[in-house]
């Protein structure tokens, strides 16, 4: 039992926080605990979850990716241009999604090939991606897409919509990847001791690069959902989403030093942040207080998690 609590501390804590949030908000406002609102939270959070999944692998492997927000916008705009040029939806996706793969590959190859800091490289691509998005659109959004494309943002499949379904599928895939495949094992091992992984005969650069590619691809998928939902490709889409994604991954029990990461924890953290956001809106707390409170919650949680990690890392990292 003690072992269980220790192992799943972050996940259990987040579940408790989520339950408390739900109970408090349900008491405070009758609008909170309704299907429509819960659905709304899931719908809003689905994009955050997709982004955070990619970030979870990157952070587990000891890296960081600041470029996901601009990759979202950049790849979305490529899709939008393709559709505006009369290319069918599948063709546009086949042009937009590889943008994420390309950015991820550039990130990964520069970081591994020249042994450069992921913080600096991905910061560079954050600017490049945003710059490309603004240049291509001359800074004004592109809107009006075919219905088949809009389905990807808000189309229903049974009781839920496509983004929620896609996020759920990606969560399952990510969980399996991290916990049951060599790819996930090596991601965590790279974060712990990449020299040990190299000496074990594993091609470190291939695994590390593929992790950034995965993260970039998920960012492009998030971009696709965003523009399909809004029926508009905004060059400023995904502004600062990387901070939310990083916060969710670390709240979920990962260490920024690498070597630790949890898919369940990351998803729970996204839900906590999403619920908090939603609750503050329902309680009619002005948006600037929302920002303030969210920031405080994130910092408190990060400090708490990091202190816990440090206490452990005396022996563990």
């Amino acid at each position: 039992m003690k072992h269980f609590i220790e192992k799943y501390f972050s996940q259990l804590l987040l579940t408790a926080v989520l339950l408390i949030l739900v109970i408090v908000l349900s008491c405070k406002t009758p609008y909170f605990f309704t299907w429509a609102n819960c659905y709304n939270i899931l719908d809003q959070t689905s994009i955050d979850i997709i982004l955070a999944l990619g970030m979870a692998f990157v952070i587990s492997s000891g890296g960081i990716d600041l470029s996901i927000g601009s990759t979202m916008a950049f790849s979305g705009i490529v899709m939008a241009f393709a559709m505006k040029a009369g290319i069918p939806v599948w063709g546009s996706l086949a042009m937009g999604l590889p943008v994420g793969i390309l950015v991820g590959a550039c990130n990964g190859l520069l970081i591994t090939g020249l042994n450069l800091s992921p913080l600096v490289i991905t910061l560079g691509f954050m600017s490049i991606g945003r710059g490309m998005a603004l240049i291509l659109t001359k800074s004004s959004p592109i809107f009006g897409f075919p219905n088949t494309f809009k389905f990807l943002g808000s189309g229903h499949i049974g009781p839920i919509n496509f983004p929620i379904l896609l996020a759920a599928i990606l969560v399952v895939i990510s969980w399996v990847l991290l916990n049951m495949t060599k790819w996930g094992y090596y991601a965590l091992a790279l974060g712990g001791n990449d020299e040990a992984v190299r000496r074990a005969g594993v091609s470190v650069w291939q695994y590390r690069t593929s992790i950034y590619i995965f993260c970039g691809l998920l960012a492009a998928i998030a971009g696709m959902i965003t523009i399909a939902r809004l029926n508009s490709a905004d060059p400023l889409a995904g502004w600062m989403v990387e901070t939310d994604a990083i916060a969710a991954v670390v709240l979920g029990g990962a260490s920024l030093n690498g070597g630790k990461g949890s898919i369940a924890g990351t998803v729970l953290a996204c839900l906590v942040l999403g619920t908090l956001d939603n609750g503050l809106i329902l309680l009619a707390i002005p948006s600037y207080y929302q920002k303030l409170l969210c920031g405080i919650v994130i910092i408190l949680a990060l400090v708490f998690t990091e202190l816990r990690n440090r206490k452990e890392s005396i022996s563990v990292s």
Binding site: Y185, L188, A189, N193, A196, A200, G259, V316
Partner: peptide, 14 residues
């Protein structure tokens, strides 16, 4: 050349 944040079996088979 061990990965401290992983368990024993994972390290043996790294």
């Amino acid at each position: 050349s061990l990965v401290n944040c992983r368990d024993i079996a994972t390290n043996v088979f790294l």
